[in-house]
């Protein structure tokens, strides 16, 4: 499985350079916003999710699956590696963007957005990203990466639509205290969700003929 991680990092390296460019670009763009930190971090973490999906595209281009399944690798390992990859990329992006925005916040503090709020916000973004990728990975294993790009749009559109609808229905936003306690529980929920998603993907991939 470590070999597969190596393989993905080598193939994604080219893409990583684009990421660094985006990092600088979005740092500049977000500097003009009210709260640059959340926007910047949100975007960088989203990019890391897209990198995971890109690794599937590269695999499909090289017809990698058939080759991988001629090696001493189990299907479970192949699935597990992608989940691990997405977590590594997500956390790498989160830590990097958190550090950058912390430095920026030192120079241009946002009122009411201290370290605690910043940490909560970052945690929420990580959880949201893992939630999306947790939905997407089984779909990719089932339908292939090309078809799954359509789902990607749907996955992002659905929660946004839900929030807008709830807002239209006149539901007020929950209190800050309620939000904070929700965020505290969130990582555990996401962890469970991720595990479930992994098990589903293993099931899908194990029954697939290549």
């Amino acid at each position: 499985m470590i070999g597969l991680l190596y393989k993905d990092f080598y193939t994604l390296r080219q893409y990583g350079k684009t990421m660094l460019f985006m990092l600088v670009l979005f740092a500049v763009i977000s500097a003009g916003l009210d709260n640059p930190a959340t926007f910047f971090e949100g975007f960088i973490i989203l990019m890391s999710m897209i990198m995971t999906i890109t690794s599937f595209s590269y695999d499909a281009l090289a017809k990698w699956d058939r080759y991988a399944l001629s090696m001493p690798l189990t299907r479970k390992e192949i699935v597990a590696e992608k989940y691990l990859l997405s977590i590594i990329l997500c956390f790498a992006a989160a830590i990097l963007s958190f550090l950058i925005s912390t430095v920026v916040l030192q120079f241009a503090p946002v009122e009411g957005f201290g370290m605690t709020a910043h940490l909560y916000a970052t945690t929420t973004i990580i959880c949201a990203a893992l939630f999306f990728i947790g939905i997407l990975l089984p779909l990719i294993f089932q339908f292939g990466v090309e078809k799954s790009r359509v789902f990607l749009i749907a996955i992002f559109a659905a929660p946004t639509a839900a929030v807008i609808t709830l807002d239209k229905m006149g539901l007020s936003m929950p209190s800050e205290a309620a939000l904070f306690s929700f965020v505290k529980l969130l990582p555990f929920g996401i962890l469970l969700f991720y595990l479930l998603s992994y098990l589903i993907s293993v099931r899908i991939y194990s029954s697939k003929e290549i």
Binding site: K63, W64, S70
Partner: peptide
């Protein structure tokens, strides 16, 4: 295999 190998950026 006649097809199925490493991605070419390696």
């Amino acid at each position: 295999l006649d097809e199925g190998y490493f991605y070419e950026n390696i």
